[in-house]
Simulated assay, not measured.
Amino acid sequence: MILPPLRRTAADAQKVAAIVHAGQTDKAGRPYVEHLARVAAGVLRLSEGCPFWSDEERDEAVQAAWLHDVVEDTSFGFAGLAKEGFSDNVLTSVAMLTKPGGTVTYAAWISNIAKVGTLRGILVKLADLEDNSDPERLALLPEETCQRLLRKYEPAKDVLRTAARAKGWQAA
């Protein structure tokens, strides 16, 4: 083989996310894809703390950022993502970031991500929580909702930062 096998890129993930999340809005009524774009940008920023990552690893992290809510919030599913040709690394990250059903608490789910997750998945979840707890976004919500989300997200971000550092992330 002369050329490497074709692989999906962050631009491909962005296209899939835009299509499968079309018409969805966030808690403030904004197009959901805007959240995904901010998470992808956040992953790029956080990945600066990973000078050991290759361009491909960084791109797969951004792909996971674009796709992190596909299985949880759409009918597309893992089979669709696999059929579209996304790598096992990306699919593993999406699986790790998909909330399990049943009685698992949010704190237990975050703790599990921190314990067994890849650095890629941990940074995607951290970027997700940073966007979800952004003061400008929270200002669009009722005060009671803001406080509830902050009580939920702030400790989770601390857990994820600690886990990322343990996996070699060099926080900026």
Rank of each mutant, 00 (worst) to 15 (best):
R7L: 05
G23T: 02
S47E: 00
A171N: 09
G168W: 08
E84K: 15
A18H: 02
A172S: 15
K27C: 10
N132A: 15
A22T: 00
G102H: 09
C146R: 15
E84M: 11
V159G: 07
D134K: 11
W109A: 09
L129K: 08
K167E: 04
E48V: 14
K83V: 04
H68A: 07
A166V: 04
A61G: 11
H35G: 04
K152H: 13
L141R: 07
A10K: 01
K99N: 09
V62S: 00
F86P: 03
R161M: 11
V70H: 00
A95T: 13
D59I: 00
R161I: 07
H35N: 01
G42C: 01
M1W: 05
R8N: 07
L91E: 05
H35W: 01
T103S: 13
A13F: 00
A171I: 07
G85Q: 06
V70D: 00
L3P: 11
E143R: 13
R165D: 01
V124D: 00
C146L: 07
H21Y: 02
D55A: 15
T103R: 15
A11M: 04
R45M: 09
V124H: 03
L160W: 10
V33Q: 06
L126H: 04
R137F: 12
V33Y: 01
A156P: 01
Q170C: 13
N112E: 14
L91I: 12
E136V: 12
W109L: 09
H21A: 03
M1Q: 12
V124P: 02
S47C: 12
F78A: 14
F76D: 01
V90H: 08
T98S: 11
A61S: 10
V116Y: 07
G23V: 06
L81Y: 05
K125I: 05
A22R: 14
R8S: 11
S75Q: 08
E84N: 07
D59L: 03
K27Y: 15
G49T: 03
P155W: 00
A64P: 02
G102Y: 08
S93V: 10
D88L: 11
H35I: 01
M96N: 08
A37K: 09
C50W: 12
V159I: 14
L123I: 02
R165I: 12
T145L: 15
A127H: 09
E60D: 14
A79P: 05
R8A: 12
T105N: 02
E56M: 11
D73R: 09
L91M: 09
E143D: 13
T105L: 05
T9M: 06
T145D: 12
C146N: 11
D88P: 04
T105P: 00
G102V: 06
L81Q: 05
V94C: 03
T105F: 01
L3M: 11
S75C: 04
P100S: 05
Q170I: 15
P100K: 05
L119N: 01
T25Q: 13
S133M: 07
L97Q: 00
P135T: 08
T9V: 05
A82L: 07
Q147H: 13
T98A: 07
L3R: 13
T98D: 04
E48Q: 15
Q170S: 15
T98E: 05
V62I: 12
D12A: 07
V33P: 03
S75W: 02
V62T: 09
V70L: 00
A28Q: 08
A82S: 10
T162N: 12
L36I: 00
W66P: 03
G168R: 14
A10R: 02
T9I: 04
K125G: 03
T162E: 14
L91D: 06
L160M: 10
